Simulated assay, not measured.
Amino acid sequence: MIISDLDLYARPQKRVRINRRRWINLLDLGEGGPSVVLCGGDHSTTLVWARVHSKLARDFRVVAYDRAGLGFSDPGPFPRTTPRVVGDLRAALKAAGIAPPYVLVGASNGGFETRWFARHHPEEVVGMVLVDTAADDWTLRQQAAAPSWRPAWKNYLNQLRYVAACARSGALRPGLAEYAQYVPEPNAQLPEALNLQRRDAALTAGYWRTHISECEAIETASALGGPDTRALLGDLPLVVLSAGLRSAPPLPTEEAEAFLATLEAGQDALAALSTRGVRRHVTDSGHNIQIDRPEVVIGAVAEVIALAPTGRQPSTTPPR
């Protein structure tokens, strides 16, 4: 069944139990293999894929999930590292009976997780789409290219910690500058129930604690690539989608240019993860290509599935 009603995202979709104490929320639509697994960036839920999911599910089985501590998924252990996020995902796929092979789609920081998944469970992966994600060693490269970036990043994290403290004390209310900046305003394109759910989530200290931990884990995730990174996918199909409308953080002009140049070079490095990797500029899209140009992501996924090896079929049982 394909559901396009956005009210769906205002309530749990399919909560599966991954251990004695924790449940993860999935949105599982469509039929057919290989299954497409959508991995959003830090502090994302199934909603980030709303413009892609149901359309892809007309032809394929497609699953998205709320990251632990967000949406309708229970909180997970801290810190929220890449191995822990992938562990939750694989446990949820098993609990839901969604067996490999998988085509992994990683947007933003979700690209670190799809690569970790493929590095440690290569027999389960038959293709990948990376949606404006960063390359391995990204934080080290950015620090070298733009020395002012790290202090600015640390300042941003401190701002989030203050917002979390306000949420914890109940002070995150209308009239506070941080409320206007960090609590989402109602979106006229979304149903009222969904706007309320998004607002209420942003008023909880747990939401901000999870968000901060995921941001802090970016540096570690960026360094997870090993010497085998270039050969990560072998000859599996890979499409790298790069945003053409990126903006640098507020940095001195030369450093801002170096920051963007480092991101650009990283996109070529990502395409080299497979001998069949291709990179495409999405010139009229910002960072969230799955929102700005969903048809491009849908086309890339369909292309990877068409090229995925049919002979490399792992066990039809869910992941262990």
Rank of each mutant, 00 (worst) to 15 (best):
P186E: 02
H287C: 11
T204N: 07
T310E: 12
S54I: 09
L232E: 03
R198A: 13
G286P: 07
S44M: 13
A223K: 04
V37E: 14
L172V: 08
R84P: 10
E303I: 08
R280W: 08
S4P: 11
A118R: 02
H287G: 08
R61E: 01
A164Y: 11
P151W: 07
L157W: 10
L251D: 10
V239W: 11
N19S: 12
A202R: 05
A95L: 08
A223C: 10
D200G: 01
D5W: 00
D5E: 11
L233K: 05
V239D: 10
E178A: 14
D66Y: 03
A164T: 05
A152T: 03
A68R: 13
E303G: 02
V183L: 13
D74C: 05
G311K: 02
L263Q: 12
A10K: 03
Y156M: 13
D88K: 10
A221K: 00
N187A: 13
P77W: 02
Y182P: 11
N25E: 02
P79H: 11
G127Q: 12
I298S: 01
P237Q: 10
P250C: 02
D136G: 14
A135M: 04
P319N: 13
V278Q: 11
A177N: 11
F112R: 01
T283V: 14
V278K: 14
G206M: 14
L241D: 00
L190F: 00
G234F: 12
A256C: 07
R80N: 13
A180T: 15
A95K: 00
G76Y: 01
I18D: 06
A269L: 11
R276D: 09
V282G: 08
T114W: 00
I305H: 04
S35R: 15
I298Y: 06
N195A: 07
P147T: 04
G244Q: 07
E255R: 04
D200Y: 06
W153P: 01
R84T: 14
G234D: 09
S247G: 09
